[in-house]
């Protein structure tokens, strides 16, 4: 007998009418994800259903949605993981709904920009002197660099729920990702965006951001470390090991003995239309 799952989806069309729930019956196959079920509905039952998805492998962060009371990436979650034969799918809370399950993430990206999420260096980069980083220096920020900006952390945060101006866990964790990087020298600049009303001090450690993050980023840990670094900086105690420059590299010199070589060219530029003619 074919196994079926009942999928209830919150529909909303920005036309002034209140949201409504619509129910669909979807045949459940082994390994079927929530996104597969939504694709099935769109292709076979209701073409007007709107949802956002792109990579289908938990990389792009497009398909975050609220399923049976918890935020998930739809492509990353199989139906059997939910453990119910009825799925209730709603758009991600704390973001305005555009249509059905599509939310407007522009506020997330705006906040991300405010924390200067890039390496700030006092000197111009020198291509011939690579920056050397030790494994422990890499681990200090690596976890936080896995953020895919899906918005799940913001949807879980109770402070975001009641303070629409709060920077939010995504932006704050990214502020720490760059501040913890010993190649970065921009903490003093970044501090202006963090140490202000609705900034880092509005985080009261509910931990839902870290709990729900589908990529294991642990924003709560990053934010608390950011607070410690800010307090230390008020007393002039914020220190991190400065990244050192490696020995000069000559791009023209032959690679050292035993170093791996690039694969041999199999297609010459003349063979392709990209030859530059």
């Amino acid at each position: 007998m074919e196994r079926r799952v009942s999928v209830k989806v919150q529909r909303y069309a920005s036309n002034g009418l209140p949201p409504r729930i619509e129910q669909y019956e979807v045949p459940q196959k082994e390994g079927m994800t929530i996104l597969d079920a939504l694709m099935f509905i769109k292709e076979n039952l209701d073409g007007s259903l709107a949802f956002r998805a792109s990579c289908r492998m938990g990389i792009c962060g497009s398909c975050a949605m609220f399923v049976n009371g918890y935020p998930y990436l739809a492509c990353h979650t199989q139906i059997h993981e939910i453990g119910k034969q009825e799925l209730i799918i709603k758009p991600l809370p704390n973001f305005p709904v555009v249509k059905d399950l599509v939310v407007d993430l522009s506020s997330l990206f705006d906040r991300h920009r405010t924390v200067l999420p890039y390496l700030i260096r006092s000197e111009e980069p020198d291509d011939t002197r690579p920056i050397v980083q030790r494994p422990d220096e890499l681990e200090a920020f690596l976890k936080f660099s896995y953020c895919i900006k899906c918005g799940i952390c913001v949807s879980g945060c109770p402070t975001c729920a009641s303070d629409p101006t709060f920077l939010g866990p995504q932006a704050l964790a990214q502020a720490w990702r760059y501040s913890a990087d010993n190649r970065d020298e921009g903490f003093a600049k970044r501090k202006e965006s963090l140490d202000r009303p609705h900034g880092v001090w509005n985080c009261h450690l509910a931990g839902a951001c870290s709990e729900a993050c589908p990529k294991g980023v642990d924003p709560a840990l990053g934010i608390q470390r950011l607070k410690r670094a800010l307090i230390a900086s008020y007393f002039g105690l914020f220190r991190k090991r400065k990244a050192t420059l490696g020995p000069p590299v000559s791009w023209e010199a032959a690679p050292p003995e035993g170093a791996p070589r690039p694969p041999e060219r199999t297609v010459t530029p003349e063979d392709t239309s990209l030859s530059g003619d």
Binding site: G69, L92, P93, A161, S162, P164, T165, A206, G207
Partner: peptide, 23 residues
């Protein structure tokens, strides 16, 4: 401030989903 059309608001402090103890 972002639009609050779909925000949980203070109600979200009480119940927002199946989160852990700390929330």
């Amino acid at each position: 401030a972002r639009p609050v059309q779909n925000d949980l608001g203070i109600v979200g402090w009480g119940w927002a989903g199946r989160y852990g103890l700390e929330r």
